[in-house]
Structure formats: C-alpha cells, structure tokens
C-alpha cells in the first residue's frame, strides 16, 4: 500500500486559515490502513479545524467526506455537485489523490493533509516500512523476494557493499542490510545459484529517471 504520515495540524491551518468553507476529504484505501487519511482522521482534523475557527471568532464551515478512493474518476465524481461551494479542499489521501482531486476540480484550491512517504507494509500497528520503489522492472525473482532497489541504501544490484556489518547497513544499526537478507533467503530456498549470477546494468528509464510513467493496456480499454 501507499504509506503516508499526517501533516502537523499547524501546517494545515496555515494553508486554510483564511478560507471560509473547507472540505476535509478522506480516502478509504491505503491511507485508512496506515491511519493517516481515513474517515477517523477526517473526523479528527475537521473537528480540530472547526474549533480553531470558532476560537478565532470566525463563522466558518468545515465539512467531512470520505471517498472510497481518490484515484478513480467514479469516486471523485461523487463530490461534483458539492465541490463548488468550498473555498478549499484538504485532501488527506496520498499525493495521487490530492493531485487527481486538483485536476478534476480545477478552480478549487486543493491542499495536502498528509505527507506521502513510500510503498510499504504494516510490520505492526504504528510501524510501516518501505518495500517497493516502483522501479518498473521487477527483479524479485532473482533476489529471493527481497528488493535491493528499495531496501539497499545504495540500490546495489550486486551486493553487499563493504558497509554491511553483522547483517546491518552502515547508514544505521536499525537498518537491515538488504543483501544479507537476500543471501539468507536464497540459502533458505536453496537457490544460492542465483547469487552467482551477475546483474547487468539496470534500465533505469523504466524508473523515474525516464520521466513521468504510463501503463497503457489497450486490451482492457473500453
């Protein structure tokens, strides 16, 4: 899932302090799971904003809506009739949702309510860690299901480097060496032969280096 973290309320207030009618727009997908932008967080942020405005002595309106997703036309269209009445929309979906909302509601300012962080997993409640960088050319088949692109600080395809010590990365004692994990896993599945294989230079044009990316599937287009 896409992992996001809540922005400080001060930062959000700074963006919308002069707005009269504000919509806090949540998303029922990834940001709900990582407890940053779901219905519950919409309620907390909207309540805090209402009290902030009331405390300032201004008569403002703050409404709450949580959509199924903010990255699909059909769900974002659900606010088509209502959107015009707001001076600002605070989208607490990931950066994708914020941008798609801004694209669809061109004349209404849309502000982000979260910092979108990475593609990751819930290790335990309150701890999310990165697993994928969406590099566009998956090599997990050869690395025992552990991704050196996202989990090695140097993105080494032929590791480990000299900074690996006792299974940890030199950048931090809390960070596992991805290549140690890969070797441990390859041993466990009895595929150390894959470790013998040298990776040639990766085609980074499929990553962000090639500019904004597209997936085009004519077979599913209507």
């Amino acid at each position: 899932m896409i992992v996001a973290d809540r922005k400080p309320i001060e930062e959000i207030i700074e963006q919308v302090k002069d707005c009269k009618k504000v919509l806090v727009l949540g998303c029922n997908e990834c940001v709900t799971v990582c407890e940053a932008g779901g219905k519950k967080e919409v309620g907390v942020l909207a309540s805090a904003l209402r009290m902030y405005y009331a405390n300032k002595g201004v008569d403002n309106r703050v409404d709450e809506i949580t959509l199924e997703r903010q990255c699909d036309h059909e769900y974002l269209e659900e606010i088509r009739e209502k959107a015009d009445q707001y001076d600002a929309i605070i989208s607490i979906a990931c950066g994708v949702g914020v941008q798609f909302t801004a694209e669809k509601y061109h004349a209404i300012p849309v502000f982000p309510g979260v910092n979108t962080c990475f593609l990751g997993v819930t290790e335990k409640r309150g701890l999310w860690t990165e697993r994928c960088q969406a590099c566009g050319q998956c090599i997990l088949a050869y690395t025992g299901g552990i991704c050196p692109v996202s989990r090695c600080a140097k993105r080494l395809l032929n590791g480990p480097c000299g900074g690996s010590s006792k299974g940890k990365c030199e950048i931090s004692k809390d960070t596992d060496c991805a290549w140690q994990l890969i070797i441990d896993r390859l041993k466990a599945i009895n595929r150390m032969d894959l470790y013998e294989k040298l990776f040639s230079i990766k085609d980074w044009s499929k990553d962000r280096a090639g500019g904004p990316r597209k997936v085009i599937r004519e077979d599913v287009m209507i």
Partner: peptide, 8 residues
C-alpha cells in the same frame, strides 16, 4: 497536542 495547537 491538538488542543494546544488550536488554542483550546
């Protein structure tokens, strides 16, 4: 924390 931020 929230109440401190919003001045309550």
């Amino acid at each position: 924390k929230i109440l401190n931020t919003i001045g309550v």
